[in-house]
Nucleic acid binder design. Structure first.
Lengths: 94, 94
DNA sequence: TAGATATTTAGATAAATATCTAAATATTAT
DNA sequence: ATAATATTTAGATATTTATCTAAATATCTA
């Protein structure tokens, strides 16, 4: 539980919007890129940051790569916020 | 509810640790700075970023400035994560 | 096998960020 | 008033980041 990659990943507005896009169902890289006005390469870069943070999972399906939200990590980060609201907190996990 | 400043503020490990320090009670800038090995000026800079994000509130008390957690904004950010978990989401608020 | 499509990787660049030291501001105490 | 203490602001610098274009890789289809 090192949260550095997770929070860094969440600090960019495009990456947060990608997560919201994936809220209802998985999408391919191209479908995701179509929602934005930056290049596909840039979206690919953002996806790799989300992947490193384990906020998304990817699955290769033939020509396409499908991305989906990883709820496990979303829940872990929620846990971090709950420590702020009075729960326990292990200082090492930051 | 523009979350950009909030998430940016949370993306630095020192700032997250400051928030955890303030979990139980308010502290002065100096008390906060004493927990870290960077200069007071640097901590002051981090505090100003947390303040801009409204994650902390400050109150001048004579020679000291006391900082405390702003739970209101913590709760707002929790709301953002809940949209990811199936709730409603207004795309403008990102 | 060639050509088309989907995605990522590489290399470059401009902007943003964290940090430092030194100086400024404000408050308290002698 | 002067000195000491607490904090912030200013200016500089090195690192990180988001973005682009062009090239590489992988898969599908005719």
């Amino acid at each position: 539980m090192g949260f550095q990659l997770t929070f860094k990943a969440l600090s960019d507005p495009i990456r947060r919007e990608i997560l919201q896009l994936l809220r209802t169902s998985p999408l391919t890289a191209g479908e995701i890129a179509a929602h934005f006005s930056v290049s596909n390469a840039t979206i690919s870069h953002h996806l790799s940051i989300l992947k490193d943070a384990e906020l998304v999972l990817d699955e290769k399906q033939g020509k396409y790569i499908t991305y989906e939200l990883n709820m496990t990590v979303v829940d872990e980060i929620l846990g971090w916020f709950y420590t702020l609201k009075g729960g326990d907190f292990n200082e090492k996990d930051n």
